[in-house]
């Protein structure tokens, strides 16, 4: 999940860097005298770079689709979508995906509840209120948070955050959605904050001046003019962060437990879709069996969820662009 979301900017940067030195080597040749063979070679290479990521995605989709079809030849849609128990490894097998979906939705909802206010407010502070010097120091520091390996976050959730929460909520289980969700929220704060800050920073200064010129205070200008003008970027930041939370694996696998159950109680152990995939992939379930194929069915469901969300985000951005 994180690999896919990180790929496009990297690729774009790579393509730009590739074109740069090459262009400077030949000082301004007239277009007609450019060597066609060489141009074609470069063009072909760049096309390959772009095609590679598309082909990889296609390959994943094909495997996912094939194995998922295999799964559904043995398990009906009714069993998959009409049940709330997920016990494919037990003698009494149930394949109710909602037990895993609820775990994912619950932990992600907690994460976004934590990350949205902190991320957005810190973006507003950095872009609109902080002195330039402060911003120059704080923004990279904030982004450092994104570089912490998720295994560290997961262990932190399990061994620090959950015990701390237990002093306030005594009935909190050792593995629970709350601690994992909160820490996941902290993990995605820099994502929301950094991307929203970019969006806020891109709002033309003339709009701020217009707001101030009308007698608006700094805060009124921020909330009535700057934030609305940046809303498509902010919406994109939130969606990306949410995608990241839904796809996050290590924190929830370590700290949220491995007990699929259909619940929205944040105090008890749950299992997310990603954590289930980890559990099967690391266990001794033989490949090719039905139990093994559940991984692909869960993966497909996960893919559909994030895909739908990205689609939604794109439509949102498009709508706002039209208005803007």
């Amino acid at each position: 999940m994180d690999v896919t979301s990180a790929t496009p900017p990297t690729l774009a940067a790579g393509a730009g860097a590739g074109a740069g030195p090459n262009a400077s080597r030949r000082p301004a040749p007239p277009a007609a005298r450019a060597t066609p063979a060489r141009e074609h070679l470069i063009e072909g290479f760049l096309f390959l770079c772009g095609a590679l990521s598309i082909l990889t995605t296609l390959g994943i989709l094909i495997v996912l689709g094939y194995e998922t079809a295999g799964f559904f030849s043995e398990v009906s849609f009714g069993q998959f979508f009409g049940d709330t128990e997920w016990t494919p490894l037990f003698a009494d097998k149930h394949f109710g995906i909602w037990a895993l979906v609820s775990g994912t939705v619950l932990t992600s909802a907690i994460a976004i509840t934590v990350a949205l206010p902190f991320g957005l407010l810190s973006a507003i502070y950095l872009s609109e209120l902080a002195p330039r010097q402060t911003r120059r120091v704080l923004k990279p520091l904030m982004e450092l948070l994104a570089g912490v390996p998720t295994i560290v976050y997961g262990f932190f959730a399990l061994s620090v955050v959950t015990p701390a929460l237990q002093t306030v909520i005594p009935e909190l289980a050792g593995f629970n959605a709350l601690g994992a969700g909160i820490v996941m929220g902290v993990m995605i704060i820099p994502m929301i904050s950094s991307l929203s800050e970019d969006a806020l920073h891109a709002v033309p200064q003339s709009l701020r001046e217009a707001a101030w010129g009308l007698g608006g205070s700094r805060l009124a200008g921020i909330f009535q003019v700057v934030l609305p003008a940046a809303r498509s970027g902010v919406a994109a930041a939130i969606t990306l962060a949410l995608s990241r939370a839904i796809g996050e694996t290590m924190i929830v696998a370590i700290a949220a437990g491995q007990q699929p159950r259909f619940t929205f109680d944040p105090r008890v152990p749950v299992e997310t879709m990603t954590a289930y995939i980890v559990q099967i992939s690391m266990g001794d379930v033989p490949a090719g069996t039905l139990e093994f194929r559940t991984v692909f069915a869960v993966g497909a469901a996960l893919f559909l969820m994030t895909f739908a969300m990205n689609l939604f985000a794109q439509r949102l951005a498009k709508k706002y662009r039209r208005l803007g």
Binding site: P204, S206, L207, E209, A210, A211, L214, G215, G216, S217, A220, G221, Q224, V225, P228, A229, R231, Y320, L323, G324
Partner: peptide, 22 residues
């Protein structure tokens, strides 16, 4: 440079100053 507020209708642009000042 004309700088109407991009997210607002004509009407809301005119009212923006009043909203901004409460």
């Amino acid at each position: 440079k004309p700088n109407p507020f991009p997210t607002m209708s004509i009407r809301d642009n005119v009212l923006a100053g009043l909203r901004l000042t409460g």
